[in-house]
Structure formats: structure tokens, C-alpha cells
Design a protein around this nucleic acid. Sequence first.
DNA 1: ACGGGCGCATGAAACGTTTCACAAGGTAGT
DNA 2: ACTACCTTGTGAAACGTTTCATGCGCCCGT
Lengths: 343, 343
Amino acid sequence: MAVTGIKEVARRAGVSLGTVSNVLNRPDSVAPATRRRVLDAIDELGYVRNDSARHLRAGSSRTVAIVVLDVSNPFFTDVVQGAEAVVEAAGGMLVVCNSGQDPAREGRHLATLEEQRVRGLLITPVENGRHERLERLVDRGIPVVLVDRGSGQLNRCSVAVDDVLGGRLAATHLAELGHRHIAFVGGPASIAQVADRHAGAAAALTEHGGGIELEVVETKALSVTAGRQAAEDICALPQARRPTAIFCANDLLALGVLQGLTIGGLRVPEDISLVGYDDIDFAAAAAVPLTSVGQPREQLGRTAAQLLLEEADTDAAHGHRHVVFQPQLVVRQSTAAPRRRTR
Amino acid sequence: MAVTGIKEVARRAGVSLGTVSNVLNRPDSVAPATRRRVLDAIDELGYVRNDSARHLRAGSSRTVAIVVLDVSNPFFTDVVQGAEAVVEAAGGMLVVCNSGQDPAREGRHLATLEEQRVRGLLITPVENGRHERLERLVDRGIPVVLVDRGSGQLNRCSVAVDDVLGGRLAATHLAELGHRHIAFVGGPASIAQVADRHAGAAAALTEHGGGIELEVVETKALSVTAGRQAAEDICALPQARRPTAIFCANDLLALGVLQGLTIGGLRVPEDISLVGYDDIDFAAAAAVPLTSVGQPREQLGRTAAQLLLEEADTDAAHGHRHVVFQPQLVVRQSTAAPRRRTR
DNA sequence: ACGGGCGCATGAAACGTTTCACAAGGTAGT
DNA sequence: ACTACCTTGTGAAACGTTTCATGCGCCCGT
């Protein structure tokens, strides 16, 4: 009921303002008897600290924000959960903001977060390159950690997964199964992750030799719908010109492709092999469990959060680190050796 | 750079503290020339409002929180997006908290949010019934809207979907297709949604007459894994005792069941029909597109947020409303008439 | 017995806003 | 010319904390 604060508690317990504050923040420096009295008063009054006042005084807050591209992509929800665990363990709070790939929305979020004087920021920026607003936050002393984005910048930490290697793994797997005609499905190519995964695949195939063809099918988005569409195009090809394997930049895409292929009457993996990327839970749960390139999603979030808190706690200049994880190929049932072509 | 506030801006613009505040909050009450000068000063200094101070003074904040059971369930991410849209349009910020079905975690979140003096709270509580902490928030004057939970309580608004009706729709659909032996897969039964959906199905079948059997397969969770497990059990039954249709409490479950049936060599819908619930995007994208009971997920979130803001804006006592949406059956390819039993 | 330390409690100052009562000057109405 | 009012700007108070210099009493060691 009591909407008021520490003052009322102090009066009730018959102590001074400062003492109540001490009970709250440095309980050991208060005599047990006094402490008891204060705690009782707090209970009776139903007193709850006022965070705004606390942080106004303290200057910094205990909340950390994470800005993601798409809250409904399981990849990000897992990253969020990882970060959440670390932040909460440290007594903080993680607020999740969704930019939905929209730079304007991202901007609004950053503005609000700046006003809130958040403790730190985890972000997968919508756009690459210089980011004025982000620079400002950094200048202001708010630590920023880039998530799932290699960092050209040196003035902040970053956490990422080696997408080039991921692409290599997928392509090598297909090549070793004997595929000679592979399609890469993904897009838009402006997205760094997509470009890297493709580059990795291309490099691996070149090294592997044997003139393996890597055809690119560019999609508009990394979504299930986009994948289904791409699959339709592929089904329409005459069998001779049809790839025997598909590597998707993303599991959502791969699920769409799987669906499209099924509709088009092609079986996975008998007629065509399929590799996804991210290894989201739905990949394993698909009707044909997907072979996919796994990323340590939760760990990505955890590490990012750790780096952030570390930086936030370090008073002095802190050495910015760039952690890169290794992806891992998870082989399931969507890949197999190509059938002999009818000769 | 300037870490300081309004004061410095005032000095630079050669005006008083109050004037700067007016420029920020009531620009019209300031002469254009003065306003210009102040705005310039703000720009040059890179001044950014301090939210803590503002809210300390104002008493209430502009952030609204939503506490969900599982951030990685697409159902909730859609609800969140709906709420987000409304809150952001109103100039507020939505913070997403994940209780992960854990009452303790939920409690910690609520404690923090109470300290933050959030403007309002959207929540799908982990447990039903009286909720001490929630009561406290309400007493404190923080509006609370229950999401996806019918409200026994009358001291707050709620937004829900009629789960009993949803159950009826699913069961009726199957009965009309000619199924005589149906299984309900879901659990734990303590979850209100699960119980309601089952109750609806049972009621509909009774009314439909013809002695249709409704068998219950209780699961431990509403997850893909749990569904796969349940499907294995069903596959193990001798054909004569095997249901010809399955109604799942949840799409995640249904996806798991679909996978389990496929592994077990049963085809959907030829051998067995399958109905899910929620109509998440992955349901439409499954290898066999799922018939499912759709809920207006985003609208659920939007409405909840609207109710909340409305309550927060109303000074006087406000009439608590309970909005109930109608679910809708979405028929896709996972349901069909049962094959004639081999006689 | 005396000074130094230590343990505990105090109260005022400061954090950066917003608000509010008020002042100064100008304009208009009578 | 006088009052009344409007427009624009002012500065102090208040919001609820935390922090810090200070004070008071007590014990201990010499």
C-alpha cells in the first residue's frame, strides 16, 4: 500500500534514512538488532525499492538489452536464452528488443535504450558497416557486443560463428557423398552470413576438385516461404539439369525447400539431398530430419553476455575480444549418396 | 560526450532549466527562437534524456512488460509481436520476460518489474489460482492483463481464446470425417489450456452421438519430443486398437507426433489423421501441412496491450474487461476420412 | 588513565528531471 | 490610462535513492 519509500520505513523502524539504505545494500554493516527492526518495517509496509531513484543516483542500471533481427526465428530465441541465463545469474535483467530487420525500428530501440542508460547492449545490427548510433553508445561508455556478426570494428567485442567454415563443412559432406551438382539456396546476398556460407561452400568444392558445379539460387528472405518457392523452381527443372543436393543458408529455408520438394514429388534424400544451417530444434523434428550445420546458439548468447558484463565491470580500458566459434556438421537423414543417374 | 544533463544545455543556450524542460515536453509553449537555440545546444552537446530521472519525478514509466511461459514457442513470439506493435505505437517499450514455466523465475521477474515500477504487465502466469505477487502489483496500482488465461479474478482484465470451443471444432471435424476412435494427446492435464481443449473435444463427441471413443494419451510437456514419444506408443498398438485420428493439444506436440508416426511407418492422413492446435507457421510448413485450430495470436497480443494501456491511462476505476476470441479450424492435408478397416 | 581504533548510526548532499507558482513585459479592451 | 490578460521565461522544490563525512560511544593496549 505504502507508495512511499525508504523514509517511511526509517520512521517506522525508528532509525535514520541512511541506516535503511545500509540494511538494503550493506547488511553486514548494521547491527543485527537494528537490521531486524528495519526488515520488519519493510515487511509490514510492503516496501519495494524504487529502481529509478536508485539508478538515477548510481548512474548506471542493471539491465542489459539484446536487439535481435527476428524474435520468431528459433535461432535467436536460443541465443536470447543463453544470454538471459548469464545476465540473470549476475542479478541483472535482460530486455529483448526486436528490430525485425528494420533499420528505423532498430534506431528507435537504440534511442530508448540510450535514454534508459542500459548497462550494456548485445546486438545483431541490421546493417553492416559504420553505425553512427552504435558509435555514440560506445562513446558514451555503454559496452556493446556484436552478436553473430564478425567485427570490422576494433572498439568493441564480438561473438560469432565461423560461417565460412560452416559452408565448407556442408559442401564437403555433400562432395564426399558423391554429389557433383549442388545448389546453394539463400539470400539476400547482402547479408554477411549468407555470403560467408556460400563462399565457404565454393572454396571447399574448388579444393575438392573434380569440377563440382555449385549453382546459386538466390532468395528474397531467409524464411520458410522463400524456401518453398525456391524448391518449386528446382522441381521444374528437367532431371538432367537438376542438382542432386541442396545446401540452404538457413534451416527455415531448408524446411521450406523440404516441403516444396515433397509437394513436387521429389523424395529426400533419395532423389535429392538437403543440408540446412543453424540446426534449430525444428530441423531435427522435421518429417525428414535435416542434416544441418549446427551452431552453439545458446553458447553464443552466453559468451556474448559474459563478455559484456566483463567489460561493464572493468573500470579501465578493456581489451576487446573477438570470439569465433566453430560450427559443426550434424548428419541426419536428409543427405545420402546420389542415385545413379538413369543412363 | 557530455554526460551531464539539462543543466548544461540550459547554460549553453543561455536559458533556464525549466525552459529546456519545456522545449522537451511542451515545445509549443516556448518561443520559436528560444526553442531553436535550445535544440541546437542539445544537438551540439549530444544530450540524451535520462529516463531514470524523468520517471523518478513522474512516478510512472513508459515501459510495459510481458511475461511468457516460453519464448521459444512460436505461439508466444507471435503474441509478443502483437503486443509490441501496440506498445511501440503508443511510444512505449515492451520488455519480454521468460518464465520458462518456472514459478521461481516468474517470481524474480515480477519482483524486478515491481522495482522498475513498470507501467503495466501482460502475463501468462505459470500457475493458476490466487497469485500473491500479482495481487500486490494490482494493489500497487500497476495494471495487469492476463493473457491466454481465463480469469477467475475480477480485478483485472484478461484476454483469451475459447479453448473449449477449439476442442469442439477439432473433434467435430474428425467426427464428421467419420472417425470413431480418436486419441487426445496432451499434458500435463494441470494446464488449463490442455484441460479445456480436452473437455471441448469430449463434449462435442458426446453430443455428436454414435459412441465415438476418445482416448487420452497424457504427455509430460507440450513439446516436439513429447509428441514423438506419444506417437511411438500409438504405433505400438495393434491396428484394431489404434485410433484413426489424433487431436493434439498443441502444434509442437503434433509436429512430434507426425514425426513419430512417419518413423513408425504410418502415413498421415492415409493411415491416421492428425489435428494440431495454435496454427503456428511451422504447422503449415510441415512436410504434411497440419490441420490445426488457429488462434488469433497476434491479435491476442494486440488486444491485451490495448486493454492494458487503456487501463493505465484511465485515472478513475476502470471497468475490467474479459475478451474471449473464437478459435478457427484450419483444414489442411493432415486429416481425411478413415480408411475402411480391413474386414 | 588516556589516545587510538573500531563499530554503528546519522543526516545532508547529490543524482537529473518535471512541475508549479510566479514575474516581467506586452497587448488589448474599456 | 488603467486593468486584465496572455505569452514567455524563471527558479526552487520535490521525486526516492545512495554516499560520505561525521559523530558518538566503547574497548583495547600501553
